[in-house]
Nucleic acid binder design. Structure first.
Lengths: 224, 224
DNA sequence: CGGCACCTTGAGTATCCTCAAGAGAGGTGG
DNA sequence: CCACCTCTCTTGAGGATACTCAAGGTGCCG
Protein backbone atom coordinates (compact mmCIF):
# COMPACT_ATOMS: atom_id res chain seq x y z
CA UNK A 1 0.00 0.00 0.00
CA UNK A 2 2.32 2.68 1.21
CA UNK A 3 -0.06 5.53 1.80
CA UNK A 4 2.36 8.13 2.96
CA UNK A 5 1.32 10.96 5.21
CA UNK A 6 3.64 13.77 4.39
CA UNK A 7 5.58 15.73 7.00
CA UNK A 8 3.70 18.00 9.29
CA UNK A 9 3.27 21.61 8.38
CA UNK A 10 3.83 24.18 11.00
CA UNK A 11 1.10 25.80 12.97
CA UNK A 12 -0.06 29.34 12.89
CA UNK A 13 -2.02 29.89 16.04
CA UNK A 14 -1.92 32.49 18.77
CA UNK A 15 0.78 31.54 21.28
CA UNK A 16 0.75 28.02 19.91
CA UNK A 17 2.77 25.07 21.04
CA UNK A 18 5.37 23.96 18.58
CA UNK A 19 4.04 21.24 16.34
CA UNK A 20 6.43 18.35 16.19
CA UNK A 21 7.04 17.11 12.69
CA UNK A 22 8.64 13.99 14.10
CA UNK A 23 8.13 12.13 17.31
CA UNK A 24 9.67 13.86 20.30
CA UNK A 25 7.80 13.87 23.55
CA UNK A 26 5.72 16.76 24.74
CA UNK A 27 7.48 18.41 27.62
CA UNK A 28 4.76 20.26 29.36
CA UNK A 29 4.99 20.88 33.08
CA UNK A 30 2.84 18.32 34.89
CA UNK A 31 0.87 20.94 36.70
CA UNK A 32 -2.42 19.28 36.05
CA UNK A 33 -3.65 22.44 34.38
CA UNK A 34 -5.58 21.89 31.22
CA UNK A 35 -3.95 23.42 28.21
CA UNK A 36 -5.23 23.76 24.70
CA UNK A 37 -2.94 22.93 21.82
CA UNK A 38 -3.38 23.77 18.16
CA UNK A 39 -2.37 21.11 15.69
CA UNK A 40 -1.78 21.72 12.00
CA UNK A 41 -3.21 19.30 9.48
CA UNK A 42 -1.08 16.15 9.41
CA UNK A 43 0.90 17.21 12.49
CA UNK A 44 1.21 14.88 15.44
CA UNK A 45 -0.43 15.29 18.83
CA UNK A 46 1.83 12.49 19.98
CA UNK A 47 3.92 9.90 18.21
CA UNK A 48 4.22 6.15 18.51
CA UNK A 49 6.58 5.46 21.40
CA UNK A 50 6.05 8.78 23.14
CA UNK A 51 5.48 8.65 26.88
CA UNK A 52 1.77 8.45 27.65
CA UNK A 53 1.38 11.11 30.33
CA UNK A 54 -1.71 12.88 29.11
CA UNK A 55 -5.17 12.39 27.83
CA UNK A 56 -6.50 14.65 25.11
CA UNK A 57 -9.93 15.90 24.23
CA UNK A 58 -10.72 17.10 20.75
CA UNK A 59 -12.01 20.68 20.78
CA UNK A 60 -12.19 21.19 17.04
CA UNK A 61 -11.08 19.34 13.94
CA UNK A 62 -10.55 15.62 13.49
CA UNK A 63 -7.76 13.39 14.85
CA UNK A 64 -6.65 10.01 13.53
CA UNK A 65 -5.03 7.32 15.67
CA UNK A 66 -2.56 5.39 13.58
CA UNK A 67 0.52 3.26 13.33
CA UNK A 68 3.09 2.74 10.60
CA UNK A 69 4.39 -0.71 9.75
CA UNK A 70 7.96 -1.36 8.69
CA UNK A 71 6.97 -1.51 5.02
CA UNK A 72 5.50 1.98 5.32
CA UNK A 73 1.93 0.76 5.39
CA UNK A 74 -0.32 2.74 7.70
CA UNK A 75 -3.12 1.41 9.85
CA UNK A 76 -5.71 3.78 11.31
CA UNK A 77 -7.51 2.48 14.37
CA UNK A 78 -9.84 5.40 14.98
CA UNK A 79 -10.96 8.89 14.03
CA UNK A 80 -11.83 11.29 16.82
CA UNK A 81 -14.27 14.18 16.59
CA UNK A 82 -14.88 17.15 18.91
CA UNK A 83 -15.76 15.94 22.39
CA UNK A 84 -13.90 12.64 22.02
CA UNK A 85 -11.13 11.76 24.45
CA UNK A 86 -8.10 9.83 23.27
CA UNK A 87 -4.62 8.88 24.39
CA UNK A 88 -5.44 6.12 26.87
CA UNK A 89 -2.80 3.38 26.93
CA UNK A 90 -2.16 0.14 28.77
CA UNK A 91 1.58 0.82 28.80
CA UNK A 92 3.33 4.01 29.81
CA UNK A 93 4.07 4.89 26.21
CA UNK A 94 1.86 5.39 23.19
CA UNK A 95 1.52 2.42 20.89
CA UNK A 96 -0.19 4.53 18.27
CA UNK A 97 0.42 8.03 17.00
CA UNK A 98 -2.28 10.70 17.02
CA UNK A 99 -2.27 13.01 14.01
CA UNK A 100 -4.53 15.80 12.90
CA UNK A 101 -6.63 15.03 9.85
CA UNK A 102 -7.70 18.66 9.62
CA UNK A 103 -6.34 21.64 11.50
CA UNK A 104 -7.43 20.85 15.02
CA UNK A 105 -7.23 21.90 18.62
CA UNK A 106 -7.09 19.56 21.57
CA UNK A 107 -7.08 20.01 25.32
CA UNK A 108 -4.55 17.97 27.24
CA UNK A 109 -5.09 16.67 30.76
CA UNK A 110 -2.29 15.19 32.85
CA UNK A 111 -3.12 11.55 33.35
CA UNK A 112 -2.33 11.43 37.04
CA UNK A 113 -4.94 14.12 37.60
CA UNK A 114 -7.51 12.04 35.81
CA UNK A 115 -6.72 8.92 37.80
CA UNK A 116 -8.22 8.40 41.21
CA UNK A 117 -6.35 10.19 43.97
CA UNK A 118 -6.45 7.11 46.20
CA UNK A 119 -2.95 6.22 45.17
CA UNK A 120 -3.80 2.75 43.96
CA UNK A 121 -4.00 3.66 40.32
CA UNK A 122 -7.71 3.24 39.78
CA UNK A 123 -9.92 5.38 37.63
CA UNK A 124 -12.63 7.86 38.40
CA UNK A 125 -16.09 7.31 37.01
CA UNK A 126 -15.57 9.60 34.05
CA UNK A 127 -12.29 8.01 33.02
CA UNK A 128 -13.77 4.58 33.54
CA UNK A 129 -16.62 5.35 31.17
CA UNK A 130 -14.18 6.62 28.57
CA UNK A 131 -12.14 3.42 28.78
CA UNK A 132 -15.18 1.18 28.50
CA UNK A 133 -16.56 3.12 25.57
CA UNK A 134 -13.18 2.94 23.90
CA UNK A 135 -13.10 -0.81 24.37
CA UNK A 136 -16.59 -1.21 23.05
CA UNK A 137 -15.98 0.89 19.96
CA UNK A 138 -12.76 -0.93 19.17
CA UNK A 139 -14.58 -4.25 19.38
CA UNK A 140 -17.33 -3.01 17.09
CA UNK A 141 -14.82 -1.77 14.58
CA UNK A 142 -12.94 -5.06 14.72
CA UNK A 143 -16.12 -7.01 14.09
CA UNK A 144 -17.16 -4.68 11.30
CA UNK A 145 -13.80 -5.16 9.61
CA UNK A 146 -14.81 -8.70 8.74
CA UNK A 147 -17.58 -7.69 6.39
CA UNK A 148 -17.46 -6.98 2.68
CA UNK A 149 -15.93 -3.81 1.30
CA UNK A 150 -19.37 -2.42 0.47
CA UNK A 151 -20.67 -3.12 3.98
CA UNK A 152 -17.67 -1.45 5.60
CA UNK A 153 -17.96 1.66 3.46
CA UNK A 154 -21.69 1.84 4.21
CA UNK A 155 -21.01 1.52 7.93
CA UNK A 156 -18.39 4.23 7.63
CA UNK A 157 -20.71 6.66 5.84
CA UNK A 158 -23.43 6.06 8.43
CA UNK A 159 -20.93 6.60 11.23
CA UNK A 160 -19.76 9.86 9.69
CA UNK A 161 -23.38 10.99 9.44
CA UNK A 162 -23.94 10.09 13.08
CA UNK A 163 -20.78 11.85 14.24
CA UNK A 164 -21.67 15.05 12.45
CA UNK A 165 -25.35 15.55 13.12
CA UNK A 166 -27.32 18.37 11.63
CA UNK A 167 -25.47 18.19 8.35
CA UNK A 168 -27.59 17.64 5.28
CA UNK A 169 -24.49 16.94 3.26
CA UNK A 170 -22.14 14.81 5.32
CA UNK A 171 -18.60 16.15 5.19
CA UNK A 172 -15.80 13.63 4.95
CA UNK A 173 -12.96 15.49 6.63
CA UNK A 174 -10.45 12.79 5.71
CA UNK A 175 -8.93 11.73 2.41
CA UNK A 176 -9.68 8.50 0.56
CA UNK A 177 -6.31 7.32 1.77
CA UNK A 178 -7.34 7.90 5.40
CA UNK A 179 -10.60 6.06 4.84
CA UNK A 180 -8.82 3.18 3.13
CA UNK A 181 -6.32 2.78 5.98
CA UNK A 182 -9.17 2.87 8.49
CA UNK A 183 -11.33 0.33 6.65
CA UNK A 184 -8.39 -1.82 5.61
CA UNK A 185 -8.83 -1.54 1.88
CA UNK A 186 -7.29 0.40 -0.99
CA UNK A 187 -8.24 3.90 -2.03
CA UNK A 188 -9.41 2.43 -5.33
CA UNK A 189 -11.87 0.16 -3.56
CA UNK A 190 -13.17 3.05 -1.44
CA UNK A 191 -13.67 5.13 -4.55
CA UNK A 192 -15.26 2.34 -6.57
CA UNK A 193 -17.61 1.47 -3.72
CA UNK A 194 -18.80 5.06 -3.34
CA UNK A 195 -19.26 5.27 -7.10
CA UNK A 196 -21.32 2.10 -6.97
CA UNK A 197 -23.51 3.56 -4.19
CA UNK A 198 -23.99 6.64 -6.33
CA UNK A 199 -24.90 4.60 -9.41
CA UNK A 200 -27.41 2.67 -7.32
CA UNK A 201 -28.97 5.91 -6.17
CA UNK A 202 -28.09 5.31 -2.54
CA UNK A 203 -25.98 8.43 -2.14
CA UNK A 204 -25.13 11.59 -4.03
CA UNK A 205 -21.57 12.88 -4.16
CA UNK A 206 -21.82 16.65 -4.01
CA UNK A 207 -18.04 16.56 -4.14
CA UNK A 208 -15.49 13.91 -3.25
CA UNK A 209 -15.66 15.09 0.36
CA UNK A 210 -19.39 15.74 0.66
CA UNK A 211 -21.94 12.98 0.67
CA UNK A 212 -25.71 13.18 0.64
CA UNK A 213 -27.54 10.05 1.74
CA UNK A 214 -30.48 9.57 -0.61
CA UNK A 215 -31.65 6.18 0.59
CA UNK A 216 -30.78 5.60 4.26
CA UNK A 217 -32.75 2.37 4.31
CA UNK A 218 -30.74 0.89 1.46
CA UNK A 219 -27.51 2.05 3.07
CA UNK A 220 -28.47 0.35 6.31
CA UNK A 221 -29.26 -2.77 4.36
CA UNK A 222 -25.81 -2.78 2.78
CA UNK A 223 -24.25 -2.15 6.17
CA UNK A 224 -26.14 -4.95 7.88
CA UNK B 1 -19.77 -19.32 6.53
CA UNK B 2 -22.27 -20.57 9.05
CA UNK B 3 -20.01 -22.27 11.56
CA UNK B 4 -22.55 -23.50 14.00
CA UNK B 5 -21.73 -24.16 17.61
CA UNK B 6 -24.10 -26.84 18.69
CA UNK B 7 -26.28 -26.62 21.80
CA UNK B 8 -24.63 -26.81 25.16
CA UNK B 9 -24.27 -30.09 26.90
CA UNK B 10 -25.06 -30.30 30.54
CA UNK B 11 -22.52 -30.10 33.27
CA UNK B 12 -21.51 -32.73 35.71
CA UNK B 13 -19.79 -31.02 38.58
CA UNK B 14 -20.25 -31.09 42.33
CA UNK B 15 -23.08 -28.72 43.26
CA UNK B 16 -22.82 -27.04 39.89
CA UNK B 17 -24.83 -24.18 38.53
CA UNK B 18 -27.18 -25.17 35.78
CA UNK B 19 -25.61 -24.63 32.39
CA UNK B 20 -27.87 -22.64 30.17
CA UNK B 21 -28.21 -24.05 26.68
CA UNK B 22 -29.85 -20.83 25.61
CA UNK B 23 -29.47 -17.29 26.82
CA UNK B 24 -31.24 -16.70 30.08
CA UNK B 25 -29.60 -14.52 32.70
CA UNK B 26 -27.65 -15.86 35.61
CA UNK B 27 -29.58 -15.24 38.74
CA UNK B 28 -27.00 -15.43 41.42
CA UNK B 29 -27.52 -13.49 44.65
CA UNK B 30 -25.42 -10.34 44.52
CA UNK B 31 -23.69 -11.13 47.73
CA UNK B 32 -20.28 -10.26 46.42
CA UNK B 33 -19.08 -13.73 47.33
CA UNK B 34 -16.91 -15.35 44.73
CA UNK B 35 -18.37 -18.53 43.37
CA UNK B 36 -16.88 -21.07 41.05
CA UNK B 37 -18.95 -22.38 38.19
CA UNK B 38 -18.31 -25.42 36.03
CA UNK B 39 -19.09 -25.07 32.36
CA UNK B 40 -19.46 -27.97 29.94
CA UNK B 41 -17.81 -27.76 26.55
CA UNK B 42 -19.86 -25.46 24.30
CA UNK B 43 -22.03 -24.28 27.17
CA UNK B 44 -22.47 -20.58 27.84
CA UNK B 45 -21.04 -18.65 30.76
CA UNK B 46 -23.28 -15.81 29.67
CA UNK B 47 -25.18 -15.06 26.50
CA UNK B 48 -25.42 -12.04 24.25
CA UNK B 49 -27.92 -9.67 25.81
CA UNK B 50 -27.60 -11.03 29.33
CA UNK B 51 -27.24 -8.46 32.11
CA UNK B 52 -23.58 -7.74 32.78
CA UNK B 53 -23.44 -7.97 36.57
CA UNK B 54 -20.34 -10.05 37.00
CA UNK B 55 -16.78 -10.46 35.93
CA UNK B 56 -15.35 -13.92 35.45
CA UNK B 57 -11.91 -15.37 35.84
CA UNK B 58 -10.94 -18.55 34.06
CA UNK B 59 -9.77 -21.21 36.50
CA UNK B 60 -9.37 -24.04 34.03
CA UNK B 61 -10.23 -24.71 30.43
CA UNK B 62 -10.64 -22.22 27.61
CA UNK B 63 -13.43 -19.70 27.00
CA UNK B 64 -14.37 -18.03 23.71
CA UNK B 65 -16.03 -14.63 23.46
CA UNK B 66 -18.31 -14.59 20.47
CA UNK B 67 -21.33 -13.21 18.71
CA UNK B 68 -23.71 -14.64 16.14
CA UNK B 69 -24.86 -12.63 13.16
CA UNK B 70 -28.34 -12.87 11.71
CA UNK B 71 -27.14 -15.17 8.92
CA UNK B 72 -25.77 -17.57 11.53
CA UNK B 73 -22.18 -16.54 11.01
CA UNK B 74 -20.13 -16.49 14.19
CA UNK B 75 -17.42 -14.02 15.11
CA UNK B 76 -15.00 -14.80 17.91
CA UNK B 77 -13.34 -11.78 19.46
CA UNK B 78 -11.12 -13.55 21.99
CA UNK B 79 -10.06 -16.78 23.63
CA UNK B 80 -9.43 -16.74 27.37
CA UNK B 81 -7.08 -19.03 29.25
CA UNK B 82 -6.69 -19.73 32.96
CA UNK B 83 -5.97 -16.51 34.83
CA UNK B 84 -7.72 -14.29 32.29
CA UNK B 85 -10.60 -12.08 33.35
CA UNK B 86 -13.51 -11.47 31.00
CA UNK B 87 -17.03 -10.08 31.00
CA UNK B 88 -16.29 -6.36 31.12
CA UNK B 89 -18.86 -4.31 29.21
CA UNK B 90 -19.53 -0.66 28.43
CA UNK B 91 -23.28 -1.22 28.67
CA UNK B 92 -25.17 -3.01 31.40
CA UNK B 93 -25.71 -6.07 29.22
CA UNK B 94 -23.32 -8.36 27.42
CA UNK B 95 -22.76 -7.63 23.76
CA UNK B 96 -20.96 -10.92 23.28
CA UNK B 97 -21.57 -14.39 24.58
CA UNK B 98 -18.95 -16.34 26.52
CA UNK B 99 -18.85 -20.05 25.76
CA UNK B 100 -16.60 -22.85 26.91
CA UNK B 101 -14.31 -24.23 24.23
CA UNK B 102 -13.35 -27.10 26.51
CA UNK B 103 -14.89 -28.14 29.81
CA UNK B 104 -13.98 -25.19 31.99
CA UNK B 105 -14.43 -23.64 35.38
CA UNK B 106 -14.68 -19.93 36.05
CA UNK B 107 -14.93 -17.79 39.17
CA UNK B 108 -17.52 -15.05 39.12
CA UNK B 109 -17.16 -11.75 40.94
CA UNK B 110 -20.05 -9.34 41.36
CA UNK B 111 -19.17 -6.22 39.39
CA UNK B 112 -20.21 -3.73 42.04
CA UNK B 113 -17.70 -5.34 44.39
CA UNK B 114 -14.96 -4.88 41.86
CA UNK B 115 -15.82 -1.23 41.25
CA UNK B 116 -14.56 1.43 43.57
CA UNK B 117 -16.69 1.89 46.67
CA UNK B 118 -16.66 5.66 46.32
CA UNK B 119 -20.07 5.54 44.71
CA UNK B 120 -19.02 7.35 41.56
CA UNK B 121 -18.56 4.25 39.48
CA UNK B 122 -14.81 4.35 39.11
CA UNK B 123 -12.50 1.38 39.03
CA UNK B 124 -9.92 0.09 41.41
CA UNK B 125 -6.37 -0.36 40.24
CA UNK B 126 -6.74 -4.03 39.46
CA UNK B 127 -9.90 -3.59 37.44
CA UNK B 128 -8.37 -0.63 35.67
CA UNK B 129 -5.40 -2.70 34.58
CA UNK B 130 -7.69 -5.42 33.30
CA UNK B 131 -9.66 -2.92 31.24
CA UNK B 132 -6.56 -1.33 29.75
CA UNK B 133 -5.03 -4.68 28.91
CA UNK B 134 -8.28 -5.73 27.31
CA UNK B 135 -8.31 -2.59 25.20
CA UNK B 136 -4.73 -3.07 24.17
CA UNK B 137 -5.20 -6.71 23.18
CA UNK B 138 -8.31 -5.91 21.19
CA UNK B 139 -6.41 -3.24 19.29
CA UNK B 140 -3.55 -5.62 18.55
CA UNK B 141 -5.94 -8.26 17.32
CA UNK B 142 -7.73 -5.73 15.15
CA UNK B 143 -4.47 -4.61 13.59
CA UNK B 144 -3.33 -8.19 13.07
CA UNK B 145 -6.57 -8.99 11.29
CA UNK B 146 -5.42 -6.88 8.38
CA UNK B 147 -2.55 -9.14 7.42
CA UNK B 148 -2.47 -12.13 5.08
CA UNK B 149 -4.01 -15.45 6.07
CA UNK B 150 -0.56 -16.99 6.54
CA UNK B 151 0.56 -14.13 8.80
CA UNK B 152 -2.58 -14.37 10.94
CA UNK B 153 -2.25 -18.12 11.38
CA UNK B 154 1.42 -17.71 12.29
CA UNK B 155 0.54 -15.04 14.84
CA UNK B 156 -2.13 -17.33 16.22
CA UNK B 157 0.21 -20.29 16.61
CA UNK B 158 2.79 -18.09 18.33
CA UNK B 159 0.13 -16.70 20.64
CA UNK B 160 -1.06 -20.19 21.55
CA UNK B 161 2.54 -21.15 22.34
CA UNK B 162 2.89 -18.05 24.52
CA UNK B 163 -0.36 -18.68 26.35
CA UNK B 164 0.54 -22.27 27.15
CA UNK B 165 4.16 -22.14 28.19
CA UNK B 166 6.14 -25.22 29.05
CA UNK B 167 4.50 -27.25 26.36
CA UNK B 168 6.80 -28.80 23.82
CA UNK B 169 3.86 -29.68 21.64
CA UNK B 170 1.45 -26.76 21.64
CA UNK B 171 -2.12 -27.91 22.22
CA UNK B 172 -4.85 -26.22 20.20
CA UNK B 173 -7.82 -26.56 22.52
CA UNK B 174 -10.20 -25.19 19.89
CA UNK B 175 -11.47 -26.55 16.61
CA UNK B 176 -10.54 -25.32 13.15
CA UNK B 177 -13.94 -23.72 13.10
CA UNK B 178 -13.12 -21.74 16.27
CA UNK B 179 -9.79 -20.68 14.84
CA UNK B 180 -11.40 -19.66 11.57
CA UNK B 181 -14.03 -17.53 13.29
CA UNK B 182 -11.35 -15.90 15.43
CA UNK B 183 -9.02 -15.15 12.53
CA UNK B 184 -11.82 -14.25 10.13
CA UNK B 185 -11.18 -16.90 7.53
CA UNK B 186 -12.62 -20.27 6.54
CA UNK B 187 -11.71 -23.58 8.11
CA UNK B 188 -10.32 -24.62 4.74
CA UNK B 189 -7.90 -21.72 4.72
CA UNK B 190 -6.80 -22.47 8.29
CA UNK B 191 -6.19 -26.07 7.34
CA UNK B 192 -4.40 -25.27 4.09
CA UNK B 193 -2.19 -22.71 5.81
CA UNK B 194 -1.13 -25.15 8.53
CA UNK B 195 -0.46 -27.78 5.86
CA UNK B 196 1.67 -25.25 4.02
CA UNK B 197 3.66 -24.50 7.19
CA UNK B 198 4.18 -28.23 7.62
CA UNK B 199 5.33 -28.69 4.02
CA UNK B 200 7.76 -25.81 4.48
CA UNK B 201 9.18 -27.48 7.57
CA UNK B 202 8.10 -24.65 9.86
CA UNK B 203 5.86 -26.78 12.08
CA UNK B 204 5.05 -30.42 12.66
CA UNK B 205 1.48 -31.53 13.21
CA UNK B 206 1.62 -34.27 15.82
CA UNK B 207 -2.13 -34.35 15.43
CA UNK B 208 -4.67 -31.83 14.20
CA UNK B 209 -4.75 -30.33 17.70
CA UNK B 210 -1.04 -30.58 18.59
CA UNK B 211 1.58 -28.43 16.94
CA UNK B 212 5.34 -28.55 17.27
CA UNK B 213 7.17 -25.43 16.15
CA UNK B 214 10.25 -26.57 14.25
CA UNK B 215 11.44 -23.18 13.00
CA UNK B 216 10.40 -20.36 15.34
CA UNK B 217 12.43 -17.85 13.38
CA UNK B 218 10.64 -18.64 10.14
CA UNK B 219 7.29 -18.51 11.91
CA UNK B 220 8.12 -15.10 13.31
CA UNK B 221 9.09 -14.00 9.83
CA UNK B 222 5.74 -15.09 8.42
CA UNK B 223 3.96 -13.36 11.31
CA UNK B 224 5.85 -10.08 10.85
C1' DC C 1 -17.15 -52.25 13.80
C1' DG C 2 -20.04 -48.44 12.53
C1' DG C 3 -21.38 -43.75 13.01
C1' DC C 4 -20.32 -39.13 13.39
C1' DA C 5 -17.68 -35.14 13.90
C1' DC C 6 -13.70 -32.97 12.46
C1' DC C 7 -10.14 -32.19 9.33
C1' DT C 8 -7.84 -32.19 4.77
C1' DT C 9 -7.54 -31.69 -0.09
C1' DG C 10 -9.12 -30.35 -4.76
C1' DA C 11 -11.30 -27.46 -8.51
C1' DG C 12 -13.48 -23.43 -9.86
C1' DT C 13 -14.82 -18.65 -8.69
C1' DA C 14 -15.48 -14.06 -6.56
C1' DT C 15 -13.68 -10.25 -4.28
C1' DC C 16 -10.40 -7.14 -3.81
C1' DC C 17 -5.61 -5.69 -4.96
C1' DT C 18 -1.98 -4.01 -8.25
C1' DC C 19 -0.57 -1.34 -11.83
C1' DA C 20 -1.67 2.28 -14.91
C1' DA C 21 -3.67 6.32 -16.84
C1' DG C 22 -6.86 10.04 -16.97
C1' DA C 23 -10.04 13.69 -14.63
C1' DG C 24 -11.14 17.09 -11.03
C1' DA C 25 -10.15 20.48 -7.66
C1' DG C 26 -7.54 23.71 -5.23
C1' DG C 27 -3.69 26.77 -4.79
C1' DT C 28 0.09 29.79 -6.63
C1' DG C 29 2.26 32.84 -9.59
C1' DG C 30 2.38 35.41 -13.66
C1' DC D 1 -8.08 36.57 -13.84
C1' DC D 2 -6.22 32.91 -16.08
C1' DA D 3 -2.78 29.29 -16.67
C1' DC D 4 -0.45 25.96 -14.66
C1' DC D 5 0.94 22.73 -11.26
C1' DT D 6 0.12 19.38 -7.93
C1' DC D 7 -2.45 16.50 -5.19
C1' DT D 8 -6.44 13.79 -4.91
C1' DC D 9 -9.81 11.08 -6.78
C1' DT D 10 -11.79 8.11 -10.38
C1' DT D 11 -11.81 4.55 -13.76
C1' DG D 12 -10.00 0.51 -16.27
C1' DA D 13 -7.66 -4.08 -17.06
C1' DG D 14 -5.46 -7.95 -15.30
C1' DG D 15 -4.09 -10.87 -11.45
C1' DA D 16 -3.64 -12.88 -6.61
C1' DT D 17 -5.69 -14.31 -2.44
C1' DA D 18 -9.06 -16.50 -0.07
C1' DC D 19 -13.90 -18.31 -0.60
C1' DT D 20 -17.44 -21.82 -2.15
C1' DC D 21 -18.72 -26.21 -3.18
C1' DA D 22 -17.52 -30.93 -3.09
C1' DA D 23 -15.42 -35.24 -1.85
C1' DG D 24 -12.43 -38.09 0.76
C1' DG D 25 -9.66 -39.13 5.03
C1' DT D 26 -8.97 -39.43 10.17
C1' DG D 27 -10.02 -40.26 14.74
C1' DC D 28 -13.04 -40.83 18.57
C1' DC D 29 -16.79 -43.03 20.97
C1' DG D 30 -20.43 -45.97 21.49
Amino acid sequence: MLNTALPANVVEFPKSQVVRPNATPHRRPDTGRRSTIAIAANAEVFGEGDPANHLYRVESGVIRICRYLVDGERQISAFHFPGDVFGLEAEDFHRFAAEAVTPASVTSIALHDALAPDGCGGATGELWRIALRSLSETLEHMMASRRSAAARVAIFVLKMAERQPGCEEIPLPMSRSDIADYLDMTIETVSRTLTQFREEGVIRLASARRILILDPHALNGIAA
